[in-house]
Design a protein around this nucleic acid. Structure first.
Lengths: 251, 251
DNA sequence: TGTACATCAGTGAACGCGCGTTCACTGATGTAC
DNA sequence: TGTACATCAGTGAACGCGCGTTCACTGATGTAC
């Protein structure tokens, strides 16, 4: 019974250590995460931390899996909270907002890989969960174009729906285009490919859309978060919104 | 006179040291670049290298500026060698090919920034040169759609030319679209923005196109090079070609 | 409520290691007459 | 062609530092009777 308090303290200490590690990550990069320095920042000596983590690598692993989980949950929540017509935008914006809020964590999972570090298999599982959310957001795109009031049809089951959607956009009109030749080729190429998510597979077209979504959003976000836009004097969110719009249109 | 040989040896040694440093970068990341280890690999002792580089930081800086220069020249060459109609594709493919050939160098300049390291002003200048090449490639887009024989009009001077280009594409037809509302908003937003290149400024529309180009290509390339596509079982170049096509169409 | 024992948290010393960098020094390579 | 001097390349020892990790040990906190 009283041992529960000990366990609570234990968990608390672990969390504090990880928080300090994140702070170190922010200011000195992955290489700057040091067991001894973390301990010192917590007011204890280095070896004490070995009561809580078997090694530096275990701490790093936990930092990474925590981050994957946090991001995945954030996206899933954003999608769940939005009306079907807004799901895609909600997902995209949630991704960017999350990344801007914690740039170091974004780079921890989507930046230059830690040399010599190999992610545990657990990671792939969480990443798959996020993939599913992206699929969900992408398949909601065709349901309604234009940025407001949509017919909530519920989730499409991953089939192709890029063809004859009605065009009633509030902006510069014309709805999702039919696939271009190269988009179709990509879709064909992805059709026969390994499973990205557990359970039944989405079609090649949806896979292609998800892939484009991922890479385009990552392109803007990562350059922004890495500071590559510094000194260019523009607001990245304007670019980001334009990219969202292009993805919604292009399907 | 005979001192020339000494200088040649000197330059040679510097180059060798940088080559070894790049090898270290490849296998252990930025943090793994060590003066002592480089010297040992070259068959000499650590302090000897201080005859060639004032500090580890100077070596790093040179690695980075070399890389910027190399990439910039590669892109400029690719654009110069291509017919106007193929310039955009040539530039994009040259970028990806270069990155795939030397992933670590790509990540050195476009990956997670080295913590605590601040690039020298020289870097910005070279980066501006590359920006100019991207502008050049982007402004050549409208000249001819379709992937072959184009009317070589020579370089456009950076003006807007996305409007009424004739559509005679070899593939799924319809040429560059008129700007969507959000693309136009981005263009307006970029119009009044700081100069990205020396000399006369390109218009906001061209700036927007260049920005989209940069972020989209980077999105695919960086995820690829970082190994994030591993285990997904598809060929990233198919995606990349589709993205090039979308950029050409979208303007 | 009190005592005897087990479990756990944290300390301090020590391990071997590699790091960037300095310094005084030895040889070799160049230049000037 | 030969000698006297200056310049340069590289060595080896040493500096202080921080790293991850182990080990034996001390107190505190828990459990069992």
């Amino acid at each position: 019974m009283a041992t529960a308090r000990r366990e609570r303290y234990r968990k608390q200490t672990r969390e504090e250590a990880k928080a300090v590690a994140l702070a170190q990550l922010a200011e000195s990069g992955t290489a700057g995460i040091s067991v001894n320095a973390i301990a010192k920042a917590m007011g204890m000596t280095g070896p004490a931390l070995y009561r809580y983590f078997a090694s530096r690598d275990e701490l790093l692993t936990e930092l990474i899996t925590d981050t994957y989980r946090d991001l995945a949950e954030t996206l899933a929540q954003a999608v769940a909270d939005a009306a079907p017509a807004d799901r895609f935008r909600a997902m995209a914006r949630a991704l960017r907002d999350w990344a801007k809020r914690q740039p170091d964590r974004y780079l921890l999972i989507y930046g230059t890989p830690v040399p010599g570090y190999h992610a545990p298999p657990e990671t792939a599982e969480i990443a798959a969960g996020m993939m599913r959310t992206i699929f969900e957001a992408c398949s909601a795109v065709g349901d309604s174009v234009g940025d407001s009031v949509g017919d909530s049809v519920g989730d499409a089951d991953g089939g192709a729906d890029g063809g004859g959607a009605t065009a009633h956009g509030a902006t510069a009109s014309h709805g999702p285009q039919p696939l271009t030749e190269l988009e179709a080729e990509l879709a064909r190429h992805l059709e026969g490919v390994d499973s990205w998510v557990p359970g039944e597979q989405p079609g090649g077209e949806l896979k292609g859309r998800a892939l484009r979504t991922w890479t385009r959003l990552h392109g803007v976000i990562s350059l922004d978060v890495q500071g590559q836009f510094a000194g260019m004097g523009f607001d990245p969110s304007v670019l980001f919104e334009a990219e969202i719009d292009a993805l919604v249109r292009g399907g």
